[in-house]
């Protein structure tokens, strides 16, 4: 069941086209990652879905409603990229204020637990670390007991530990039956969290599917072997190949790996220690966006 969607949405800012006609659907219980480089249109898509801006054409719908309606807003929680939050309020004051906006908020203690803020309730926002601040913003997004969470680059600028901490809280929200739309340019993050990934580039959808489907679409494989052939020679064997030396080994990323391996073994029958793995999302992602641009 689709609970939030963008339907054939375009949005431009002056001469710049932020979104060039995209469709996006978020199903109940799904964690959808919107993945793309800076300027791909991710934040624009989020703002449209939150009713913070209106599309030039097409429509944004949340539970079948215009997202600007209060009835839609009470069912969404949003975590946006914020430069600064009022620093002279305590964590508990921020949470209680936002809870008061919703008709059926979570109990205070539950919100605190969901965002991992135990023991920080009395702290002034300005005195928190970067990771703690992001968790407060996460708490403000979940405190209203929303059906869907919209998280715009929630872990931008966080260290590895804080990032993983926030992931755990996001997973907990999904485990309770919530849906999530998350934007990120951390490929690892989309891979680790999402049921479904939509790759956005230059305002268009470059690829969509589960994380393994997205990888397959790009069909990038990493081939590792010891070979006497030099780099330019290998690079010339197929299109979209990248080659690098790693000590004794040669590492090749290719979209048409079968073809490449066949030619490699024909040219160098002595090649050994051959290892073929599915490329990480990062490589797949680069292959997709480079192919489209």
């Amino acid at each position: 069941m689709v609970i939030a969607e963008l339907r054939n949405v375009t949005k431009g800012f002056g001469p710049v086209t932020a979104l060039a006609g995209i469709d996006l659907e978020i199903a109940r219980g799904q964690l959808l990652a919107l993945l793309g480089p800076n300027g791909a249109g991710k934040t624009t898509a989020v703002r449209l879905l939150l009713g913070l801006s209106t599309p030039d054409s097409g429509a944004a719908r949340v539970f079948g409603r215009d997202p600007r309606e209060r009835a839609a807003r009470t069912r969404i929680g949003a975590m946006l990229q914020v430069g600064r939050v009022p620093e002279t309020l305590r964590v508990s004051e921020h949470i209680r204020l936002f809870s008061s906006y919703y008709p059926k908020p979570l109990p205070f203690d539950e919100t605190v637990a969901l965002a991992g803020l135990e023991g920080l309730e009395r702290r002034l926002f300005g005195k928190l670390s970067g990771g703690q601040k992001q968790r407060v913003l996460f708490a403000l997004a979940v405190c209203g007991n929303p059906d869907i969470l919209v998280l715009d680059e929630p872990t931008a600028g966080l260290d590895v530990d804080s990032r993983r901490g926030l992931w755990r809280h996001i997973r907990n929200f999904v485990a309770r039956g919530g849906s999530v739309l998350l934007t990120t340019h951390y490929l690892e993050e989309a891979d680790a969290l999402a049921d479904r990934i939509v790759v956005l580039n230059h305002g268009r959808i470059a690829a969509a599917g589960t994380s393994s489907e997205v990888r397959q679409r790009a069909a990038a494989r990493k081939i590792r072997c010891i070979t006497a052939l030099d780099e330019p020679e290998i690079a010339a064997m197929a299109e979209r190949v990248s080659v690098r030396r790693d000590g004794l080994f040669t590492e090749i990323v290719a979209t048409d790996s079968d073809h490449l391996v066949r030619r490699l073994l024909t040219r160098d029958p002595e090649a050994r220690d051959l290892e073929i793995t599915s490329a990480g999302l990062e490589e797949a992602f680069l292959a997709i966006t480079e192919a489209k641009s």
Partner: peptide, 11 residues
């Protein structure tokens, strides 16, 4: 600084 956006996205 974007804080108003967070409030406007909320009900």
């Amino acid at each position: 600084l974007g804080w108003m956006e967070v409030k406007r996205a909320s009900p």
